[in-house]
Write a protein that binds this DNA or RNA. Structure first.
Lengths: 240, 240
DNA sequence: GACATTACGTCAACACCATTGACGTGTAAA
DNA sequence: TTTACACGTCAATGGTGTTGACGTAATGTC
């Protein structure tokens, strides 16, 4: 069986023949992911193309297709790397609420640390190891925290989607060109500050509060609200 | 100054010479936006390219550049159209919770109806009339619902950011190329369904629930959780 | 009604993109 | 030492957004 059948992509585990490129680089999945993240961090999301990545690696662009079936697979690898970095060094405290809060904030922070890549990656389901590890961890927190399975699953879904959605949202703001970013920030002074109170009474009445509050991410408070609601749903434990 | 200076893009207001294309179409900004929305609705997000839009209009692709400086400007025009449609026909019920729920779901639904444009719009503060109208409405619901200003503002922020973040997140999933979208959906069966229960006990124990729940958006439940938490924060009214 | 002006649709070209089949060489196993 | 083939390279295909040049048909003027 198993004809010659040389598949284009060989799984990273059973790679044996690493041949250096003309320019002397020795490729690997890890090196490619790392280089891609650096490329995006330094030159923006639009700098990530197969050709440019090949150049940055010192290899022919098509060599990448020995490691990833297509650019989508590469993107998923980037996403998983970000998820992995978010979990590095975390340990459970045993308190479900503190643990969920910490994980939510960690995911958010990890994505903010590379906004350009986060934008590309935040809305994918990778199925890769770091992702499954995170899913397993969060489900474990909820189940051992006393939530019955159907409730735990629904909460897991809302919690994870909200963390990723806010992460992408706030990353997008950071990833804007400087000019567009300033413009977005100034809107609160320039436009909202000048709305007449007869047509927009509620904005006029709360403007200072608004302008101050909108300068920061809404995620921490939204997360706290979610945790409040979840706590109220938690069945009373056997011991009270 | 002001030489002959024939700019490529003439503002829609002062257009005078509409020349029919070879195929007989008479172009306009409105027609282009309308056609683009139809194209995306009918043939998916990946069908929206300058060349295909030109073909759908019965015009040379480069003719579009007489109406929009680039594709980004075109997408912003699409987005603006969507924001307008989102608010059409809504009226307050007087119940703050029902109103917030309705507005959240409306924003979400409207962005889903054109994911491509939604992705561009969801993380920008435009300051345009449709946006300020929405801000005013939501603040009004909270303030007349009995929330003191500082609390109303914080809740407003969390609520709006959550709606936009989820809208963008779910729009992004819809905007994926068909292949990537299928891949994301199948991960729950193909990968998570095969994780051994000794390394991933919590996933294994809840898999059917998980796979079913992850097929839908997490927003409605996340929104409900937020409304639960907000209700608990609401000061008791004078009359009880 | 003839004419000058020019907006705007068209054409062709450019630079980029992801992807793939064929090829040969260096590497590792036998 | 030989053999097999993994993998880096090359070249080509068909897509993309965008732009400069060009001519014509639609307009305002007389």
């Amino acid at each position: 069986m198993s004809r010659g059948m040389t598949e284009r992509v060989v799984p990273e585990g059973r790679r044996q023949r690493r041949r250096p490129t003309k320019q002397g680089a020795v490729l690997s999945e890890a090196l490619i992911v790392e280089t891609a993240l650096r490329l995006v961090a330094q030159h923006g999301a639009e700098a990530l193309s197969v050709r440019r990545l090949g150049a940055a690696l010192g290899a022919d662009p098509s060599a990448l297709y020995r490691y990833f079936r297509n650019t989508d697979a590469l993107l998923l690898a980037l996403a998983d790397e970000l998820i992995g970095r978010a979990q590095d060094g975390w340990t459970s405290t045993g308190d479900w609420r503190a643990d969920l809060r910490a994980i939510g904030l960690r995911i958010h922070a990890s994505y903010q640390s590379n906004p350009q890549a986060a934008l590309l990656a935040a809305h994918r389901t990778t199925g890769r190891p770091n992702e499954t590890r995170a899913v397993e961890t969060i489900l474990g927190i909820l189940r051992s925290g006393g939530f019955p399975d159907p409730l735990a699953v629904r909460i897991y879904h809302a919690f994870v989607d909200q963390a990723l959605a806010f992460a992408a949202q706030d990353a997008a703001a950071l990833a804007l060109p400087k000019a567009a970013r300033r413009a977005d920030e100034e809107v609160w002074q320039e436009v909202y500050g000048r709305l007449p109170s007869d047509t927009h009474p509620n904005i006029a009445a709360t403007l200072p509060l608004l302008a101050a509050d909108m300068r920061t991410s809404g995620y921490p408070y939204a997360l706290e609200l979610m945790l409040d609601a979840v706590a109220a749903l938690r069945p009373a434990a056997g011991g009270g």
